[in-house]
């Protein structure tokens, strides 16, 4: 026995480690596993927050220096935009007043209202940046599982994902580009429904478009509102390729997300309050 151990101890230890790995893989996602993970997050999240803030300070400094160069021109543009927006606000106020009057007239009651919270991205996953991220808002900020996460990038607002895990000071967001993420979408133009699944990269795989569905590259995809998590009308992405599925029963497609979930710095967490 001891001879075997001396001769093959490395292989024996490897077999033991592989078996241990398999046992861990097979273990259910229960409270014990979650608490082990939570221990690591508690250990790393403060350091991640500090390093992230340092990074953001540095990038802000660089951005500030760059923005000084174009400040005057930007100022003039902003002034112009300011006048334009002021006139638009007046028009909007008029429309809002008219809308309220019509609502009262029809006794229309809204189903729910939304409120949002801005959160900063603390970290991503070690392996792939299109799977999940951690944000700096948690249960103390009234964040809960399945809250919807939006992001603003290059002047575009799009769906980023949903909350899947909440700790007191931070929460994990499952990005729409993760392979485990599936959501119901419709193409805005022709209103055909499909299921968008992440591919762990900057694209979404669309399934179950009906064969007669009028879908074209360039169609905008929004959430359908079915499924109970995502409210309707949130912009998800743009269709850029369509094809017939192998089983010939449905059409499929590939879409590009509205925002790049791999490059998020800040997100908006949307929560619903039912009336």
């Amino acid at each position: 026995m001891s001879y075997l151990w001396v001769k093959y101890k490395e292989s024996i230890v490897l077999i033991f480690l592989v078996i241990l790995g398999l046992v861990l893989i097979g273990s259910p996602f229960n409270k014990q596993v979650q608490s082990v993970r939570a221990f690591f997050y508690y250990l790393l999240i403060p350091a991640q927050k500090i390093s992230n803030e340092m990074l953001q300070d540095n990038s802000r400094l660089a951005k500030n220096i760059l923005s000084l160069i174009t400040l005057r021109e930007e100022n003039l543009n902003l002034q112009e935009e300011n006048y334009r927006l002021k006139s638009q606000i007046l028009q909007a106020q008029e429309a809002l007043f008219e809308n309220k009057q019509l609502e009262n007239l029809l006794a229309y009651k809204k189903e729910s209202v939304y409120y949002s919270q801005l959160a900063r991205v603390i970290s991503g996953e070690p392996e792939n940046c299109y799977t999940s991220i951690w944000v700096d808002k948690g249960s103390v900020d009234a964040i809960a599982v399945n809250m919807v996460v939006l992001a603003y990038q290059r002047g575009l607002i799009g769906l980023a994902g949903r909350i899947i895990e909440v700790l007191p000071q931070s929460s994990r967001v499952l990005l729409i580009t993760d392979q485990q993420s599936e959501l119901r979408v419709i193409n805005e133009r022709a209103r055909y429904e499909s299921v968008a699944q992440g591919e762990n990269n900057l694209s979404l795989r669309l399934r179950y478009f009906l064969n007669e569905a009028d879908i074209q590259p360039g169609d905008i995809l929004v959430t359908s509102g079915k499924g109970g998590i995502f409210p309707p009308g949130l912009k998800v992405g743009t269709l850029f390729k369509t094809f017939q599925e192998e089983d010939k029963l449905f059409k499929g497609g590939i879409a590009q997300p509205e925002i790049n979930p791999g490059l998020l710095e800040e997100v908006l967490i949307l929560s619903t309050v039912r009336r």
Partner: peptide, 30 residues
């Protein structure tokens, strides 16, 4: 010996930070 033990520990730490199965990276890194 050292490689596989530290491989398992390092992989397990990565697993703990990922939203995937626990033990996958630990096994691969070992």
């Amino acid at each position: 010996m050292t490689g596989q033990i530290f491989g398992f520990i390092g992989g397990l730490m990565q697993d703990c930070l990922s939203y995937g199965v626990l033990g996958g990276q630990a096994m691969v890194k070992a």
